[in-house]
Design a protein around this nucleic acid. Structure first.
Length: 272
DNA sequence: AAGGATTCCAACCGCGGGAGG
DNA sequence: CCCTCCCGCGGTTGGAATCCT
């Protein structure tokens, strides 16, 4: 007998979220906090399943999401963490302030894996491909209907690490200065219009003409986050050093778990 | 300009694991 | 233990946007 679906699909909205749905979700979470996703939609007045609400919040509406291009430093860190951790996107995302696992996964699949291949590196093993034996990688051209589960998973080192820590972002604010209207017809909705914010946060949800959320990241550091990691992140504008420190921190963790960990040769070479 | 091909990413799906009864 | 519920994760998909011919 199969597992029951997470929620009844009958009568529930699917597909892209509307600004109104975003508003309802943000308001509810601000008032009641995250969690209890299963019951959240009903209480919030949303015709969505809990998973959909959670995903929308985690990947799009959270105030600490950093939107915009992945920087070269972030790319470098993603590649190096992927070489150590494999497709553990949530772990990788946990070390990239303001980035979500979904975003990193998408970026890897659409940009980084292809770039590694073009550079003659196997994106799965991070080893150099033999030049006389080019691997033909079949990127799915379009819409595979075959829903068969993933094939044999590649061997990856078992790494026992603490749960990833989400960093709240203190990202450079591109729209903060334009208090009511963004550029190019963007509509900036102050966060305070969505929520009763008693945490003294500032920022906006930024919608364009088509009501697409462009940016919701313009927040100062929030009160309830791990201050022990603030120094790791460092000050704004010091992202390169911060990312380096994060990577160093990972290496340190790996060193302390050497008896549990079988690193692949690439990771081992990094530890020397 | 048209329309087919490709890219990109938000959203969905199913599974596994932890917590609690 | 076993079962159920819930959450979070990683793989996959749909379709809008963009590119190409």
């Amino acid at each position: 007998m199969g597992r029951a679906p997470c929620c009844s699909k009958v009568g529930l909205h699917r597909g892209p979220w509307t600004p109104r749905e975003d508003t309802l979700l943000v308001k509810y979470i601000q008032a009641h906090g995250e969690g209890h996703w299963r019951s959240l939609p009903k209480k919030a007045g949303l015709l969505r399943c809990g998973k959909s609400c959670r995903l929308r919040w985690m990947n799009y509406l959270r105030p600490d999401i950093k939107r915009g291009n992945i920087t070269p430093d972030e790319e470098d860190l993603i590649i190096r963490l992927h070489s150590l951790l494999g497709n553990r996107w949530s772990l990788i995302a946990g070390r990239l302030p303001g980035r979500t696992d979904n975003e990193i996964k998408n970026y890897w699949n659409t940009h980084l894996s292809k770039r590694l291949l073009s550079q003659g590196t196997d994106p799965n093993t991070h080893k150099k491909l033999p030049p006389d034996n080019p691997v033909v990688v079949l990127f799915p051209k379009k819409k595979r209907k075959n829903k068969s589960k993933k094939p044999i998973e590649q061997e990856k080192p078992k790494i026992h690490l603490p749960k990833p820590i989400r960093f709240t972002s203190s990202v450079q604010c591109t729209t903060k200065s334009s208090s009511q209207g963004g550029e190019n017809g963007q509509v900036l909705v102050p966060w305070s219009e969505y929520i009763n914010d008693d945490e003294n946060r500032t920022g906006f949800l930024c919608y364009n003409d088509d009501h697409d959320l462009i940016n919701s990241s313009e927040f100062e550091c929030q009160s309830h986050h791990d201050h022990d990691h603030d120094h790791v992140l460092g000050a704004e504008g010091d992202s390169h050093d911060s990312l380096e420190k994060i990577y160093e921190e990972y290496l340190q963790l790996l060193k302390t778990n050497e008896d549990q960990v079988q690193l692949d040769s690439f990771a081992e070479s990094l530890l020397i």
